[in-house]
Nucleic acid binder design. Structure first.
Length: 656
RNA sequence: GGCGAGAUAGCUCAGUUGGCUAGAGCACACGGUUCAUACCCGUGUUGUCGUGGGUUCGAAUCCCACUUUCGCUACCA
């Protein structure tokens, strides 16, 4: 179909961390990447566009624990949310990678091993400050007033075994690369930050493993350790397209690596411009061509915060304004280097002036005039006047300008160029005054020509708009009854065949909005959001169950509870739910079967000291004898938690 | 503390190597127009270009000091 391939283009976004729902600031990145990917495709490149989620780490482990589900269940939920948001924004990614994908994990383990065997990674000690109650390490710079940043208590210095990546081996090569490739780090001002803060003073070795949590990819030759975020997350750019450490990389990898563009937030520039290139050097792979650290989209009045209920999420914006309006806003308002601002007021202003007035109204009035005068049929009668020349000139220049801006990744400027064309169209209508021509029969051919020119130019504009506002572009072309124009066919001003018919009744592309109404809606949405949060909190803290009838003390005294230490535990083979534990109670050991396999693994049961009902009549469950009961608390979702004494108690201690 | 970026019309921002009588869009006012979503077109107002000093024939643009905002400051994913 398309045999004019210009070459390959591999673009990536950062993978989103699955600690929560991404807000509009995070969503900006995927839309920006999407518009670039789509434009490259429009230009005839074979594009591969990758995005995804980063799903490991302490935070995830903690959050999952808090809610009472497994980390995997937790990240499954969030990853789903992220992906559906990306889909809502109509982004055309080719691959959505998750760091919990099996093939990714496998390669990351192999990468780690290879770097270790090569001597790039060595085992050492990670020294820092340790907060006992919080069970976490901090660097000195992280401390608040020399105390734990989480709980404010005293910390003590401590060591943790860890693997480190030797940086100095490649540092000079990287410095040279950055200096000889000025386009490597964009925008350029960020380059200095990296050079001055890190590279020139000398790099410290990077800690690449952890023993303080489990939710990560295990180091396969040293099980205590999990691979820390950097090697895990950054590798997605190569594992996602089929890199293999042993040399069996896919054709896809050979086609697309090195990446043309890593699009990332400016906050993670360090990892992408220093650690990632060094990793690649160690793997003997070429470096990505460009890393672009984009600025942030901030909210006008103060920082977004969940508790204030003023966080703006993409789906809320979309509900009120529609996908393309949101895409337009984030792409157009985001400056190249400095942070941009978003507010409901600004959003309404842009929609009304640019989308409703300039663009929507232009399409609408053009179609109306065609219908009123020519039954909707477009005919080029060739009655040109001098006044047309400049208009045609602008129409033909616009595609060139847009391409030029996109070459420099100046997406906002590219969109501005397109809208300059639409404005010029409106002006052309005033210059030619079609409603005057319509009154004189002998001017009919001139009128047809004018309207033809309009459709031609709008067609150029709409085709150019495709990468940025795909749905709108299509709607306009459909309403005009014309085809999309290829980027390389924009130099001819005679594209539309005579006799093309526009739609009978123009459909409003963007309705004008009243700020008051929008704000009222927003308030409603946010109220709902806050209420939902409250409800969730309540759910979290309180569970009501059906009351049982009162019992006497004698009834209670019949029950004997003791602390039991689980010394061994295995799954009951025949059963889906049961775990069989050997529980030390005083000097004796009881075998107890419990239906908690969905909540605890056999391994993690071992060593726990739990509350046991010891004088329960033995029973046989799934063919296994059970001599008591482990007591659990259950929440409204059926999540179970073992009862464990608040202080360490010896096995056999009576619970009374 | 160190390194870096910014401070330009009511708002959001452009201003390349010094030549600007300082710009654009939005908002505002007036005029025109009526095909169209009270829309479109035109004209216009508003600025000691953060403060003070210096270099220069000439500085928003270069240099110095100050005020102020922000980013990075190494393991947070």
């Amino acid at each position: 179909m398309c045999n004019k391939k210009k070459g390959n283009y591999y673009i990536t976004t950062a993978i989103a961390y699955t600690s929560g729902k991404p807000h509009i600031g995070n969503t900006y990145e995927i839309v920006l990447a999407d518009s670039i990917a789509r434009f490259k495709r429009q230009q005839g490149y074979q594009v591969f566009f990758q995005t995804g989620t980063d799903e490991h780490g302490q935070k995830i482990e903690d959050k999952a624990k808090e809610i009472g589900i497994t980390p995997k269940e937790y990240v499954d939920q969030i990853a789903k949310k992220v992906q559906s948001l990306w889909d809502l924004m109509n982004t055309s990614y080719d691959k959505f990678i998750r760091t919990t994908d099996e093939d990714h994990q496998k390669q990351v383990q192999k990468i780690f091993k290879k770097l270790y065997q090569q001597g790039d990674i060595y085992k050492g000690y990670y020294e820092g400050m340790y907060c006992k109650p919080c069970e976490s390490f901090f660097t000195i710079s992280q401390l608040v007033d020399g105390k734990c940043p989480d709980c404010g208590r005293e910390v003590e210095s401590a060591k943790e075994e860890a693997y480190f990546f030797k940086m100095d081996r490649y540092a000079q090569r990287l410095i040279d690369h950055i200096q000889t490739n000025p386009e490597f780090i964009q925008p350029e001002s960020r380059k200095n930050e990296m050079m001055n803060n890190f590279l020139l003073p000398g790099l410290q070795d990077l800690c690449v493993s952890r023993t303080s949590f489990q939710w990560g990819i295990p180091v396969d030759f040293d099980n205590k350790h999990v691979i820390y975020v950097w090697i895990d997350a950054l590798s997605n750019y190569i594992t996602g397209i089929g890199y293999d450490v042993d040399g069996n990389s896919t054709e896809q990898f050979k086609t697309f690596w090195p990446a043309d563009l890593h699009l990332i937030g400016k906050d993670i520039l360090r990892f992408h411009t220093i650690y990632w290139p060094i990793m690649l050097m160690a793997l003997d792979l070429p470096l990505p061509k460009q890393i672009f650290g984009h600025p942030w989209l901030l909210q006008g009045d103060g920082k977004m915060s969940k508790s204030k209920g003023n966080v703006i999420y993409a789906d809320e914006l979309v509900e009120i304004f529609g996908v393309d309006a949101v895409r337009y806003f984030v792409l157009h308002e985001m400056p190249f280097e400095n942070d941009g601002v978003i507010s409901w007021e600004l959003m309404v202003e842009r929609v009304n002036s640019d989308l409703a007035n300039t663009l929507g109204n232009l399409v609408n009035r053009t179609i109306s005039m065609l219908n009123q005068n020519f039954g909707g049929v477009i005919m080029d009668k060739g009655v040109k006047e001098d006044i047309d020349e400049d208009f045609i000139q602008v129409s033909l220049e616009t595609p060139k300008k847009v391409i030029e801006k996109m070459e420099k990744l100046r997406v906002a400027d590219a969109i501005t160029e397109i809208f300059i064309l639409f404005k010029r169209c409106n002006k052309y209508i005033d210059e030619t005054m079609p409603w005057v021509l319509a009154k004189e029969k002998e001017k009919s051919d001139r009128l047809a020509t004018v309207l033809y020119h309009l459709v031609e130019s709008i067609g150029i504009g709409a085709s150019l708009l495709k990468s940025f506002m795909p749905q709108t572009s299509e709607k306009i072309l459909n309403q005009l009854g014309i085809c999309e124009r290829d980027l390389d066919k924009m130099d001819v001003y005679k594209w539309i065949p005579d006799g093309t018919k526009v739609i009978d009744k123009p459909e409003i592309l963007f309705a004008r909005l009243e700020l008051n109404k929008v704000l009222a809606k927003v308030e409603e949405q946010q109220k709902k959001e806050v209420e939902m949060m409250k409800k969730e909190e309540e759910k979290k803290t309180v569970v009501d169950i059906e009351a049982k009838s009162e019992i006497s003390y004698e009834d209670f005294a019949k029950l004997q509870f003791q602390v039991g230490e689980i010394i061994a535990c295995e799954e009951v083979k025949k059963s889906k739910k049961l775990l069989c534990s050997q529980v030390r109670i005083g000097s004796q050991v009881k075998q107890i079967v419990s239906g908690i396999k969905a909540h605890y693994t056999a391994e993690e049961m071992v060593g726990k000291k739990v509350m046991v009902l010891v004088n329960l009549k033995p029973a046989t469950l799934a063919g296994v004898v059970s001599e008591g009961m482990l007591l659990c608390a259950e929440d409204e979702n059926g999540q179970l938690g073992l009862m464990i004494p608040e202080k360490d108690m010896p096995a056999g201690a009576e619970i009374c």
